[in-house]
Simulated assay, not measured.
Amino acid sequence: MADESPKEVAEASTSNPPSDTESPSSDPTPSTSTPQPSEAQTRLDRFKALQARQKASRSANLKETKTEQTRQATDPALLTQLERRRATASHKLLKAETADFERKRAWDWTAEEAAAWDRRLEKKARHRDDVGFADYTQQARKVYKRQLRDVPPDVAAYEKQKKEAIERAAASGGLEIVETEDGELIAVDRDGSFYSTAESTEFVNSKPEKAAVDRLVDDIRKAEAARMKKRRERGLEDDTGGDVTYINQKNKQFNDKLARFYNKYTSDIRESFERGTAI
């Protein structure tokens, strides 16, 4: 190294520059990608989400439980009674403060609505007066009306059967269809065999549908259930068909009470009377 000239040293330094003087373009670029979360961090986030859902569910359940407990602790009959009293008091107060209250209140209804309401009140009063037993004819009428309400008539099926019967009668010649001047069709019964009379027996050929038979069976079962319910209410379900020692239900209850307390003392006397050996 001592033998080298200064010129050679300068050339060597020029041909091999130091590494820190290299151009910036040759430096490696730093990485800009974000680090991926680890599996433990992902599981921790899911666990926190589940904890939040559990807390929200507990709060909702607690709120609903308190609401249900409050509702069950409140008597609905008492609430209805209080609401009815409040409505009655409001009505009376408004009636006392307003002159000609009934006439002004009627302004809110039409004439048809007022007439329908009057008919409804009249019907309600008539039904209220018709609750008691009058005679067996009226009782049968009430049962018949109740059955009509429970089993509404099938008007569509009736019209269909009527149309088919008219067509059959017209085809057989027993019924004549006459057209009037106005274009209206009138059915004329020539021999009097189409329309039913007191002597007609055509109804025996009618075969009811299965649905109608089932409806009749259900009605009979309901009537039997109602009869047995009334019988149980009167205390007649324990009748064994023995000797009748009472004249009505009150007397039967009194006799049962006496038997419960005194049978152990009077059993020998009664048996002696039955054997005919009593003195």
Rank of each mutant, 00 (worst) to 15 (best):
K66N: 08
F273T: 07
R275V: 03
L236W: 14
I220A: 14
Y144P: 01
A225E: 15
T74P: 02
R168D: 03
K48M: 01
R168P: 01
L82G: 02
F47C: 00
S172W: 00
T67Q: 13
L82N: 09
E11S: 09
G276C: 04
P30L: 06
E11H: 06
L236M: 13
Q139C: 03
D239K: 05
T29N: 05
A134E: 08
P28V: 13
V188H: 11
A226P: 01
N16E: 12
P208C: 06
R141H: 11
A114V: 03
R46M: 05
D268A: 07
Q249R: 12
N16I: 12
P30W: 01
R53N: 11
A125V: 03
R221H: 09
T277S: 14
E113Y: 01
I220G: 03
F194K: 04
F133Q: 02
K252M: 05
A223S: 15
A170G: 00
A10D: 07
S26L: 10
T32Q: 06
A225L: 14
S25C: 03
W117D: 03
L175S: 04
G192E: 14
A52D: 12
D239N: 08
E64K: 15
E22A: 08
T201C: 02
E181C: 01
A115L: 13
K160M: 14
R103E: 13
K55P: 01
K7S: 12
L216V: 09
Q72I: 09
N255L: 14
A140I: 04
E159I: 02
D256G: 04
Y144N: 10
S25M: 14
E83P: 02
E164M: 11
A114S: 06
T21H: 09
E83N: 15
P28G: 10
T197M: 07
E176C: 00
R227S: 15
R275H: 06
W107Q: 05
R105D: 00
S267P: 00
R85D: 14
S26V: 15
E112R: 11
E202R: 12
Q69E: 15
A134H: 07
Q147Y: 08
E83Q: 15
G183F: 03
Q69C: 05
A40V: 11
R119H: 11
E39N: 07
D3R: 12
L258K: 10
R58V: 05
E39M: 06
K264N: 08
G132C: 02
R270L: 14
S38W: 01
N255V: 08
T29H: 07
Q54L: 08
P17I: 06
Q81T: 04
P24S: 09
E176R: 13
D189Y: 09
R120G: 01
D256N: 12
L185R: 14
A87D: 09
S31G: 02
D182Q: 08
K162W: 14
T29Q: 11
K252P: 00
D238H: 11
D189T: 07
T277Y: 04
Q51T: 01
R215I: 06
A87N: 08
E202Y: 07
M228W: 09
D3H: 09
I166G: 02
P208M: 10
I186Y: 12
D100M: 03
R231C: 08
W109Q: 04
R128S: 07
K95D: 04
D191W: 03
D238Y: 08
L44Y: 06
G276W: 05
E102Q: 07
K257P: 02
E167D: 15
S57E: 14
E199H: 05
E64S: 15
V213R: 10
K160I: 05
V244M: 05
T180F: 00
